[in-house]
Simulated scan of single mutants.
Amino acid sequence: MCRSIQTLFNLDPVATDEEVAAAALQYVRKLSGSTKPSKANQEAFDKAVEAVAAATRELLDSLVTAAPPRDREEEAAKAKARAAARFGTA
Rank of each mutant, 00 (worst) to 15 (best):
M1N: 11
M1D: 11
C2R: 11
R3M: 07
R3G: 15
R3A: 12
S4V: 05
S4H: 08
I5E: 01
I5H: 00
Q6E: 12
Q6N: 09
T7P: 09
T7C: 10
N10I: 04
N10C: 01
L11Q: 00
L11K: 00
D12P: 06
P13K: 00
V14S: 10
V14K: 11
V14G: 12
V14Y: 03
A15G: 14
A15C: 02
T16H: 02
T16S: 08
D17T: 06
D17W: 11
E18V: 04
E19K: 03
E19G: 07
V20C: 07
V20H: 02
V20R: 03
V20Q: 13
V20D: 04
V20K: 09
A21I: 04
A21N: 14
A22C: 03
A22D: 14
A22N: 07
A23V: 02
A23L: 03
A23D: 02
A23K: 05
A23H: 03
A24L: 11
A24R: 05
A24Y: 04
Q26C: 09
Q26W: 11
Y27Q: 14
Y27T: 06
Y27C: 13
V28C: 00
R29E: 15
R29P: 15
R29A: 08
R29W: 08
R29I: 10
S32Q: 07
G33R: 05
S34A: 15
S34Y: 11
S34D: 15
T35F: 10
T35A: 10
K36N: 12
S38P: 00
K39N: 12
K39R: 15
A40G: 07
A40T: 02
N41R: 06
N41D: 12
N41P: 15
N41F: 14
Q42V: 06
Q42I: 13
Q42K: 08
E43G: 04
A44C: 04
F45G: 12
K47G: 09
A48G: 08
E50G: 15
E50F: 13
E50R: 14
A51N: 05
A51Y: 01
A51I: 09
V52N: 08
A53M: 01
A53K: 02
A55F: 05
T56C: 11
T56E: 05
E58G: 15
E58C: 08
L59K: 15
L59H: 09
L60F: 13
D61V: 01
D61H: 08
S62I: 04
S62L: 07
L63C: 14
V64R: 14
V64P: 01
A66Y: 02
A66N: 05
A67W: 00
P68F: 03
P68H: 13
R70Q: 03
R70S: 05
D71E: 06
D71V: 00
R72C: 04
R72Y: 01
E73G: 06
E73C: 03
E73W: 08
E73R: 11
E73N: 15
E74C: 08
E74T: 05
E75N: 01
E75F: 00
A76G: 00
A76W: 00
A77S: 12
A77K: 12
K78N: 01
A79M: 06
A79D: 09
K80G: 09
K80P: 01
A81S: 12
R82A: 11
R82F: 09
R82G: 00
A84R: 11
A84W: 13
A84D: 11
A85V: 06
A85F: 02
A85P: 00
R86G: 06
R86Y: 04
F87W: 09
F87M: 03
G88A: 13
T89D: 09
T89I: 15
A90V: 08
A90R: 15
